[in-house]
Amino acid sequence: MFNKGSELLDLCNKENKKISDIVIEKEMKLSNSSLEEVIGIMKETFKVMEKSATEALNKEVRSVSGLTGGNAKKVEEYRNSRKTLSGVFINSAMSKALSTSEVNASMGKVCAAPTAGASGILPSAILSAKEKLESDDDTTIRGLFVAAGIGEIVAKNATVSGAEGGCQAECGVAAAMAAAGIVEMAGGTPQMSLDAAGFALINIMGLVCDPIAGLVEYPCSLRNASGVVNALISADMAMAEVESLVPFDEVVEALYKVGKALPESLRETALGGIAATPTGKELSRRLFS
């Protein structure tokens, strides 16, 4: 069992195992299930993720409120037909993250990871890495277990709720989970996975939760797109053997303290940030009048 990143690393080093091994063993013990059962549920979960990440790429999906939609398709068409600035791979990852966000806002089916608002990041990161690295199914599923392990540590020691910790606790944590997962998929060490997760959190530390009209749409979908890019570059930095000066557990603690220091107006109340701009307020008024 592990509560902290350091404990997870110790277990990996002592038993010469991958993070996914430790997380899977813990889950089997906790839920009193067999290896096949645990893997089976993850495969079903991944199917939901794959569907949501691709559903809005070729058809315009609009939100229930009518506020947002259609951007996944736009980015997908752009990367297919024009010369892009950040490349086909990055644009493809963004369109997949936008797709899940748009499916979520349209009352479609998603897997909260760790929340519904941040559900676009992990599926896109895992699918993008799978495509790039040509990973087999087992390696891909293991990437998801690593991500879950990182999420468990943050949930235990900090928070994964925007109302408590701001967007850094949702999209930031989702990116950290994803970064750690794809590092293992790429053959990185457990230490590299934790460094990647730490980088992803450091990159967005302080990010506020300020949804227009309180709806899980804008700027949420944009931050899912930037979140997956954060995950990919954090993973690459770790794979390049850039080392984190500050250990993962201390970064998580810092995230928690920063979250607590955020005023309530910037924690999912729609009273600050983008929600409180004149346009944000006008859109809210129009939606609810």
Binding site: T45, M107, K109, V110, A112, A113, P114, A148, M177
Partner: peptide, 20 residues
């Protein structure tokens, strides 16, 4: 400290947009 399982973090599978 509350114990979290893998599918507390990757889940619930749900219709959006908001878990609450």
């Amino acid at each position: 400290m509350k114990e979290y399982g893998v599918f507390d973090i990757l889940g619930p599978v749900m219709v959006g947009p908001s878990s609450s």
